[in-house]
Design a binder for these strands. Structure first.
Lengths: 210, 210
DNA sequence: AAAGAATGTGAAGGATTGCTCATATTCGCA
DNA sequence: TGCGAATATGAGCAATCCTTCACATTCTTT
């Protein structure tokens, strides 16, 4: 099973490589995963099939590149928002994070959904987990300024709430405008407030125990 | 393109038909959609490929039957919960609905996710929309007892919040126990409370305008 | 300009898939 | 028991699909 050949796949023209990835992305969002064939990708990218296989070892690798790109994009936006709002009011910081997530989902809704599904079937699980981890961390720092008692669980829940609402909106064909942001903000604020009072109760109850 | 033959597909043995659907479901949850081949389904169901095509006109029809089954199951549980709790305290009613949704997602998590994805690629959109509509309606009646000002938008948001949190939990491999239910309840309660105070504000502002 | 390296090409191999149809088997009934 | 209808079977067809490889083209260097 050793495989000594094939070292290139690295240098080559970066433009062509990106063209292939972008072609794959467009096919993914117009025809779904079952329409994503190597021939279709090559044709759409304006490249021959042979060339495609000089840039990528196989079809999965092309798909993986698409996912990696999408993930990096979201990661970049989230980091930007976090950095930019490190000293802004907490509500504004939360909104900036939300807007990053919304942009990710609404710029190319179909692609975002296909990517999310495909990620579970590829071996990118570790990278996906790492992104989730970082997002939870960023969110945690922000919500701590709104609800100091919040922990990792609350951060994961806030991410899940936002993702769920944004996803549903995208599926329903809604437009991702300020109205949606406002609703998600309300949901998160409500959850944090409720959680705070709940943990206060718990603390009160357990400290009242003998 | 006329196709006069093939009227059966109806009577036949119901047990065999269900065996085929169940086989498809199991393949879907172990190998995903790309592992769902007609040969695999037939083999797993203990039937020949020829027989499969006497029960279903094509592969899509088998998949559609799986989805229809899953959907009917959820629908049944939701209706049951709603009926059973029509005169129970609102909080208990909401919890019953949540438990129905959780059961749907956690009994066979992988299958639930594959089904949700597949539905968007089949022409079942109308049926899916009808289910969403009914779920929103059931939820609306329940949350109205907690927050009388709630409307269809709030019902959809509550569904989205619950779905998002339950989905995330299932993906993370969490177990869908009482702790998860409690967290989702908090999120929904918080959202409704926040929304109520928000609409009160809006009403106050707009009635204060000349 | 010439040669060698790098890159691009697409016909074709090998594998798989959805599905059909001629045949075999079983079932229901007299 | 015997016969016709209902049902089951699986080899095989046509259509794809992914991938390779012998060859054509372009680029680089001298």
């Amino acid at each position: 099973m050793h495989n000594p050949r094939k070292q290139p796949l690295q240098a080559r023209s970066r433009a062509t490589q990106e063209a292939i990835v972008e072609a794959a992305a467009r096919i993914l969002e117009t025809a779904g995963r079952e329409g994503l064939t190597t021939n279709a990708i090559a044709e759409r990218a304006g490249v021959s099939i042979g060339s495609l296989y000089q840039y990528f070892p196989n079809k999965e690798a092309v798909l993986a590149a698409v996912l990696r790109g999408k993930r990096a994009e979201l990661q970049g936006w989230m980091r930007d928002a976090a950095e930019r709002c490190r000293e802004a009011p907490p509500a504004a910081a939360l909104r900036a994070l939300l807007e990053a997530g919304m942009r990710h989902q609404f710029e190319r809704p179909r692609l975002a959904m296909e990517a999310e599904y495909a990620e579970q079937h590829l071996q990118l699980a570790p990278e996906t987990a790492a992104l989730a981890q970082e997002m939870a961390q960023i969110v945690l720092e922000t919500i701590r300024r709104l609800a100091p008692a919040a922990g990792p669980q609350e951060a994961r829940d806030v991410v899940a709430i936002a993702k769920g609402m944004i996803n549903a909106a995208a599926l329903n064909g809604e437009e991702g405008g300020a109205a949606l942001v406002a609703r998600v903000e309300r949901a998160i604020r409500g959850y944090l407030r409720e959680t705070a009072s709940n943990s206060a109760e718990i603390r009160a109850v357990s400290s009242a125990a003998p």
